[in-house]
Design a protein around this nucleic acid. Structure first.
Lengths: 341, 341
DNA sequence: CTGAAAGCGCTTACAG
DNA sequence: CTGAAAGCGCTTACAG
């Protein structure tokens, strides 16, 4: 490998000190430098195809201009969309993104986090899995700026930006009730993550509010590790119940996708046999004969605010914590449209 | 910010040199170090919650263990899936991924590339946009290891791993012909990118092979910048033609998505009114009444091979160029299923 | 078995 | 207006 050209090479070529080259190339001490010399430095840098070694610069300045991003799974449309927004926003501020997917696995999450911290990311945007509290505490102790996105731990004092999942779940359940349904099932993840339990809580609250007795069988839990099979079983349990569910709310678009495929296979007609609704928008449903009513998350806003909050924390030491809860948008579509009875 | 603990701190605490600490923590000079001392170093490092500063290490070793990845758009399912595979494979080898989306914009691509190179990525996996040849030449001159993925420039001697787009397009067109169609349209990007022109070439070759005269109106071009409108116009041109197309091949899943939505809106029945096929698989079609026949790309294999090739190039200086062309898989589905006439 | 020392490529207070 | 020098936190050949 031909050695890369360094400040020293330029300095030697021009006949000045590396300090001067550094000043010029970084536009420090504007005007206080001889224009002719400055110009000569600039042109030689260009001619020699100089590229600053960010690693060296980072070591000295203690800034990498890098944001670490951990999401559940970058190939999931929700994560991918979020990643894209974050990338764009980071780029605007001349930050680059390093990322990793946790697969909701605490151990994997811990390892990725370690890698990002060791690489001296200036700050982190995290969508933590269950049991990630110790790592959060760690970051706090090390005083590494971070903001949680999509989820947070209610007991912990951190920056976060999340959906009002309780409210969203309440609204969509209320919508199902308004459609005339009483036997409303929910399929959600078996998880202690707050954003998910909030969804269940919202569902239950809407039932209570409307004086609809809750039937435990109607709340079905599924595991991420075995999602397809679990979901199919859950759908089966709901629809083959002695008092079959007339409507189902899914805790995420991924659950919904598995469920709808199965429901379709079983030849149920939506919404006539069963009305459906879910969290998160996906274009996967756009072409379906009964596009799913869903809670649309403000992904763009979430991502942009997350980056903004993070950069504030990176740039100012004592930024107060910010905890933002955004409203989802109920998108009513054909899967809950009342037939004209 | 409480200063981070460094090798020096550990050395001071234990009462040895930083050199020794470094050796122990990196498992260098195994066995040639006093076990008691080594153990003491390890335990103090743990107690002090030491984390190596990768930036400093990188500056010295000239290795960042980072892979730079540039794709068209991380939020596109094809890119996202590829990114995920690459992340997993990189992780296996203890590499971290920095990424950026080019949006098929050469200028944006150049800027991202610059950022990744300046950050001293050990190597790059690139899906270059049009007119990226100068940047390729640049990388070659700087002897930065890289492999192209999904696309390449036939005139340039680089590592690459791509689909056999000509063959795939030929096959899927032949399939449409075998279904009894003669009036076959194609909607492809107006682009000089080789992988796209190959798709057109394969389409044309299949027509010729089957002695079907090519009607210029049947080949419609669309621009990424105005994709939705262009695609709708293209579909309109094909289906409102004096001799309307009976089948359409789409150059990508994104084009297909726009087209199918529009075709659906216009109440055409698939495949009876028009048969459809496209490149790339998407689960967006899984729930559609006529899932699209498509060419499935071996994404997993592509990503894994790309990382493998790249790491070989990073680790060994004179690795010979490798140029891999993989076959796609024709997935025949309802959008081209012959009705039982 | 261990340490002193140089150096990776930058930045920046300080001196002149 | 410019430069000598220290130092960021590591690694590693060399010496003992």
């Amino acid at each position: 490998m031909t050695r890369k050209v360094s400040l020293k090479d330029i300095a030697a070529a021009v006949g000045v000190s590396t300090a001067l080259v550094s000043y010029v190339l970084n536009n420090k001490k504007e005007g206080r430098i001889n224009k002719v010399v400055a110009e000569k430095i600039r042109s030689t840098a260009l001619a020699m195809n100089y590229r600053t070694n960010q690693i060296a610069k980072s070591l000295k300045t203690n800034r990498t201009h890098t944001i670490g991003l951990i999401l559940a799974d970058i190939s999931n449309p929700f994560s991918a969309a979020l990643a894209r927004v974050i990338e764009d926003e980071a780029d605007k501020h001349h930050y680059t993104v390093i990322f990793g997917s946790s697969d909701e696995n605490p151990e994997k999450y811990r390892k990725i986090l370690d890698a990002l911290v060791n690489r001296q990311a200036d700050g982190l945007i995290l969508s933590p899995p269950e049991h990630a509290e110790p790592q959060i505490t760690d970051l706090q102790q090390q005083q590494i700026p971070f903001v949680l996105i999509d989820r947070y731990f209610p007991g912990m004092e951190t920056n976060y930006i999340v959906l009002d999942n309780y409210k969203a779940a309440f609204e969509v359940t209320q919508h199902l009730i308004d459609c005339g349904h009483k036997r409303i099932g929910m399929i959600n993840y078996a998880s202690s993550l707050f954003h998910l339990t909030e969804r269940t809580r919202g569902y239950l609250a809407a039932l209570t509010k409307n004086k609809i007795p809750f039937i435990p069988d109607y709340l079905q839990q599924v595991n991420v590790t075995d999602l397809k099979a679990d979901t199919e079983k859950a759908v089966h349990n709901l629809l083959q119940h002695s008092a079959p569910a007339a409507a189902i709310l899914f805790g995420s678009n991924v659950i919904a996708m598995h469920a709808v495929k199965y429901i379709n296979q079983q030849q149920y007609i939506i919404p006539d046999n069963v009305a459906l609704a879910c969290f998160d928008e996906t274009d996967a449903f756009d072409l379906f004969y009964a596009p799913l009513t869903c809670i649309k998350q403000p992904i763009r806003e979430m991502g942009q605010l997350a980056v903004k909050m993070l950069l504030e924390n990176i740039e100012h030491n004592n930024t107060p914590l910010k905890q933002i809860t955004l409203d989802g948008e109920l998108m009513v579509r054909a899967s809950t449209r009342m037939s004209d009875v």
